[in-house]
Every structure is written in structure tokens, then in C-alpha cells.
Design a protein around this nucleic acid. Sequence first.
DNA 1: AAAGTGTATCAAAGCGCTTTGGAATGCGGT
DNA 2: ACCGCATTCCAAAGCGCTTTGATACACTTT
Lengths: 341, 341
Amino acid sequence: MNLKELSQLLGLSQTTVSRALNGYPEVSEATRARVVKAAQTHNYSPNTRAQGLATGHSRCIGHVISVNDSGEMVNPIFGDFMAGAGETYAANGYDMMMTRVGAQDEAETYRTLKARGAVDGLVVHAPRNNDDRLPLLTEIGLPFVVHGRSTGSTLDYSWLDVNNRRAFEDATRYLLSLGHQRIAFINGHETLDFAIRRREGHVRAVQEAGLTLDPALMTTGEMTEEYGHSNASAMLDMADPPSAFLVSSIICAVGVRRALDDRGLKPGRDASIVTFDDCLSYLGNGTATPVFTAMQSSVRAAGATLAQMLIDRIQNPRGPHIQTLWEAEFVVGTSTGHLKD
Amino acid sequence: MNLKELSQLLGLSQTTVSRALNGYPEVSEATRARVVKAAQTHNYSPNTRAQGLATGHSRCIGHVISVNDSGEMVNPIFGDFMAGAGETYAANGYDMMMTRVGAQDEAETYRTLKARGAVDGLVVHAPRNNDDRLPLLTEIGLPFVVHGRSTGSTLDYSWLDVNNRRAFEDATRYLLSLGHQRIAFINGHETLDFAIRRREGHVRAVQEAGLTLDPALMTTGEMTEEYGHSNASAMLDMADPPSAFLVSSIICAVGVRRALDDRGLKPGRDASIVTFDDCLSYLGNGTATPVFTAMQSSVRAAGATLAQMLIDRIQNPRGPHIQTLWEAEFVVGTSTGHLKD
DNA sequence: AAAGTGTATCAAAGCGCTTTGGAATGCGGT
DNA sequence: ACCGCATTCCAAAGCGCTTTGATACACTTT
């Protein structure tokens, strides 16, 4: 069933049917009602591609997932982010497209996406320091919003980020206030902007307290459970092990906890753990009392909000750029306690 | 840059340029080379929608994610599945589209997807017993493949599944062989086909051993960490607690382990855990020796294979349906041990 | 009665591509 | 010199929609 058939069926022109369905005022309400009903009974929906060709828009948002060097890692927050974004897209009649791409042909992918007219805009994930995707997208004229920020970029662009620096500064202060002096910092890859900011926050709080940083207690890497486990294990086996762990992801924190368990150490009693918690739906941080003391911010909510920002931007490309900074909520769970003497 | 401009630039007709780029034999190799090069330098890619309109195909695959009643859960395996599928799609020039939908307007969504011509085919996720999506999709003529199976369906359709019944039967037998008699079974929602099969496997092995099943040791639910933790906790606090846990997901298993840790019990020594492991990239089951004794099968590989099956089906809709059954690999880790007397 | 004003509808062009059904060109064979 | 026969290229139709610019008609208004 297409427009032509439907309009013939109704004894109307394609113009009128199209306008009736798209809510134009030139159509009488009586006619509109008739058209809408017929469309429903005959299960008519306008062909996406024809509509897109005529309007010049795809009503589709792209998400380009860059596969990192290891080539295998899937960001665990991805599902929740997409779930949040998906709600917004659905509510606004947008489709959501995903593209996987190796790091080397990133630029090519973005250019092709634009040339093909496949998407009206896209979300930039996992921004790096001075990320070259921002000038690229600006140059080729593809609307975008950034999940996070790109320090060093002089461009004006829209982003939504968590105040990572403050969150990790506060978290470190909290551990210091409990008497911890040797604090391990299990961070993500410091090619990523958020990881850099987190380190800055941590470093600032440690230095502020007049303590010196031990490089042996700071690691960076892919934020998997195994990564948390192996690094925490190594540190716990040091001659002078840390008494507290500051962890960049609850998934790593699970690994850190396992390292403690392996050694018969109890989190909160024998060693403390503070983690960042993205509020993943399948890895909730306890129901009544939080399991981990954590800085939390819902990545799902971030997805929903960023999607709306992008849609607004697409519909009004000349509008001002929006920058949103969310503060993480600090919750005290059972994984932290005073330093034992 | 569009076809018309490019062809004018080259002094050729649109036909010739189109044919040159699409590999038709009617074009001399010299001309083709010239065209391809010009397309590259001018960054030309055919407009997706125009191409789709002309050919009648979208070269796009749909993934409809049904949001369950709780409305909030995101399947943790989703990211890895999509990563696997995405590789295949990219290699074959297909785009990948996601749609989120509430359970009540599932049918409507599929119909609209077809009517709009938005996708050439789709992957059915999380099939239920006698799933009504299969006859629906067959009726509306949208090619599909199923990740899992739908018991009770009399249709002929393509699927890829893990032999869940055998995996859980074998796992249960393994626990029995270690002397465990009270085995808890932490399962997923038994509206889902795979969960039903897993229960069947477990039940069969228990009955085969001449033991009676204790309904108090069998739970079903959303497979989150918290779900594993709360149910394992409740069972461990029973007068006659289980000595082993059979768990449907490594995420739940992490929760079960936490419940043991809470009580100072050590997995493998004080209680055993066997889990199904989807080989999620961020939640690897140890490097050298597995942490959990597990039945493992890569959901990422499943995504890649199913994507190929679907593409084959789209390109040859009259071809035979393919049914693939994978056996899970059983690995013994540190989470299981003989029953202490 | 003529002119003006909305209102409700329509025919046709155009979006950028593929593809059908020719047409022009070059070349060997008679 | 003429006739096939490839080879190489092209003009134009068509995919299903939106949208421009008109048209037909029923009312006021002067």
C-alpha cells in the first residue's frame, strides 16, 4: 500500500492525503479524519526512503562505535546509553542507527555517513583529548553532540558531561578523611577525556593533602572486571599495599572486590573501595544500602538527554550550543571504612 | 556531490557512472577506473535513500528490543551481540538499526517497519515459548532469523541457539558428581524459551539421580547482579541451605558470589557455583584459569553468525531455513568443589 | 453584479538513484 | 563497400514521497 493507491482508494489526490497525514492546516478536519482512518485500516505508513528523498532528511541518528586497538572490547555502558537515547528517538519519530568502525578509518566513515545522507546527526562517544572528530564533523556539516567533553578543543559544540574532576576529587577527599593515605587509583584509558579529568581530580586532592603520589598505585586500561582484579591483586601483594581503591567503573570494582575476597579481605573493613557507578540496569549498586560507596550518575539518563539535545540541534542548526554538566551523586555504601591502625 | 554532478564532471552519463561504480560488466575497465577515482577524490557516495528507493531495498537490518514489564531492564548481552552482528553487517555493506518498543505495541512496530520499508530483515531477540512474532513476521513477509528458538512453533524458520538443555543437564550432573544434593537454580524469566530449556535440563538431571526437586531452591527473574545476590542470600539463610548454585548468567553469578562473601563463605570451598557464561567482553571469566566453573558460548560470535544467516536469507528468500545448534563449552574453574561432609 | 477572500483540493515537478531499451562506435569478415 | 557483432555508452522512465503554484468553489463585501 502506497500513497498513490491510498489516495485513489479515497478519491483524493496524493497531495491532500499527504497533507492530511502530516497535519497541514489546508485540509478540512473531516477529510483528515477520513484519511487517517483509511491509513490505519490499510496499514499505510509512508515509505521511509521516499519520504527522506523528498524532504532531504533521513530522520535517523547515527551512533558510531569506534573499536579500539584491542579490537574486541564492547563498552558495557553502551546498552544503557542506547536504551535511554532510544526512548527519546522513538518519542520524536527518529530511527537509531549504529555503525561499528575501526579506529583507522573513522574519518572516512563519518564522511561517508554524510555523503550518503544516511543520518541527520550523530552522537560522539568516548571523546578523546582534543578529539579530531569534532573539527571533522564541523567541517563536513554533520550536526553532533558529545557524550563527555574534549579538552583542548577550541570549537563551540554541544556536550553533556559528568563533573568527573570534582567527583574524583571529592571521592579522594572522602577516603583521606577516613585516614587512608595509600590510595590506589584504577582508571580507564587516559586517552579518553573523562579519564584524564578523573586523574586530575584525584591528583589534586592528594596533593592538597600534602601527600605524594605513588605511580605504582595508578593504573590505566580497559575497564573490565579482569583489569580491576589483576591490578588490585598486584597492588595487594606489594610490600606496602594500598588501604583504599578508587575505581573508575563498577565493573572494575567488582574485580577489585574479588581480589580482596581472594585474600580473605573484607571490603569496608580491611580495605576500602570507592567507585564510579553509571547506574547500569543489570549491575545495580544494591537496593536499600549501596554495596559500593560510589559517585553515581545514570548513563541511561545521559543518553536520553543527549538524544534530545541532538534532535533540537538538528531541527534548529543555528541555535546556540548547549553545554550541560551534571554532578555525580556521592553515596556511602558498605565498601568503605576508617583505616585500621 | 551527487551522481548527476559527478557524471557531468566526467563527461559521462549517469547510467555509465552508476554502472561503473556498481561493478556492471558493460563498462570498460579504463572508464571504470576513471570513475572510481573521481568518486574518491570528490568524496562521492550514492545517497542511501535514493538508492534504496530505486532498488526497493534499504540495506538495513532491524533489531527490535522489547522492553519488558519492568520497563527498565537492558539486556547486558546486547552490546556484545550487536558488536558481533555489526562486524558482519559492515563487511556486507548493511546498516544496523535499533528500535526500542514496549511489549504492548510490538506487533504494530513490526508492521510499521515493514510498511515503511525501513529494514530488509530483522533479528528476533529473546524468543518466548510459541512466540507470536514468528507467525506475524512470516505473515507480513519480513525476513528474520531468531537468536534462540521458540518451542511450540510449528513454523519453519532460521535460528541459532545454544543447546541450553544439555548444558544445564551436564552442569547439574557435574555438581551431583561432586556430591551436591541440594542445588539451587537461579534462572532467568521462564517466559523466555532458553530459560525453559535450561530448567528442563536441570530437572532431568536431578530426577535422573533419583532426587526430589525443592521448589524453594528454584527462582526465576531478571538476570541482574542484585537478583542473584538477593535470592542466594535468602537461600543461604534457610535452615537447610543449598550447597551449590546453578546460575543462568555470569552477572547473577557475581551476585551469588557476593552473597557467599557476605557470609564469609568461599566459592569452591564452602559452596559451589556453576554459571552460564556468554563471554561478555567486559566481564571475562578469568584469564588463565576460569573464575567460575561455567558453560560458555560467545554471544558475540552468535551475533556475527546470525547476521550472516539473515543476510543470506534476504538475498535468497526462497532458500532453505538454517537451524544451528551450538554446544556450550564446559570449563571447570575455582568456584566448584566437592561437597564438604 | 463584480470583485475580493478564504477554503479545499489538485496536477506536476523534483528529490538522486537504478535500470530498461536503444543507439553509436569500432572492427573483422565477406 | 557492406553487414553483423561486440563493445561502450546514453536518454528516459520510474521508485514513493513532498511541495509549489494553480484551480475550483462558496461566501462575503462593495
